[in-house]
């Protein structure tokens, strides 16, 4: 997103935070494809993804006043709100027992295939290459957390390993991923 579009989106989001519905409609028009993509990544079922998208935009409307332009770009804030709404829903579903952590890990495991097909932009390419350079298991943990909603506790239980072991393993992987992406940027 170029800087003019980003500034326009930030302005619209701030206005939406003051209750301006037209500005909120502009936010929707500029970001719904991006945010529907986020919902579909977490909920591959289209009907469910649509429900989450609707829910996410209501949350955005209610929280827009707390958007702090000094702390985040509008698009990363919007993606974070949407991802968190979707993950909350995913975790709630798991709690009622319709799905399990293993299922989340399976979804996450399937993701590399999709990535290979869809990666085009340079930033995406860097992320893809750097994740590929990690230990396969570590890459799976990262996907399972970000897309499948797994916490440290979930991963430790699933792997049958002590919490401390999983934590230090993922922390090492995060530093490696960060180093790789900083070097490539």
């Amino acid at each position: 997103m170029d800087s003019a579009r980003r500034a326009k989106l930030a302005d619209a989001l701030v206005l939406a935070g003051r209750g301006d519905r037209n500005a909120f409609a502009a936010v929707y028009a500029a970001t719904s494809a991006k945010l529907f993509g986020v919902c579909l990544r977490i909920f591959p079922d289209r009907n469910e993804a649509e429900d989450v998208l609707q829910d996410a935009y209501l949350t955005i409307w209610n929280k827009a006043a707390s958007f702090d332009i000094g702390r985040a770009s509008p698009i990363s804030w919007l993606v974070a709100v949407t991802r968190n709404r979707a993950i909350d829903r995913l975790r709630a579903k798991k709690r009622v027992g319709t799905s399990s952590i293993d299922e989340a890990v399976e979804i996450a495991d399937a993701a590399p295939l999709a990535d290979t097909q869809l990666i085009e932009a340079a930033d995406d390419r860097i992320l893809h290459d750097c994740i590929s350079s990690l230990d396969q298991r570590d890459a799976m943990f990262i996907r399972s957390a970000f897309i499948g909603g797994s916490t440290y506790a979930d991963l430790a239980k699933n792997e049958g390993q002590p919490l401390g072991t999983i934590k230090s393993r993922i922390r090492r992987a995060l530093l490696k991923l960060r180093g790789c992406m900083e070097a490539a940027a």
Partner: peptide, 27 residues
């Protein structure tokens, strides 16, 4: 970190046209 990881949450997908009227109604 958000900028680094957000490509994992793609790609963009056009949202169906019936979603916005539903959102607008519930504001």
């Amino acid at each position: 970190w958000r900028l680094r990881l957000n490509p994992l949450l793609g790609p963009e997908q056009a949202a169906p046209a019936h979603i916005w009227p539903k959102i607008e109604k519930t504001l």
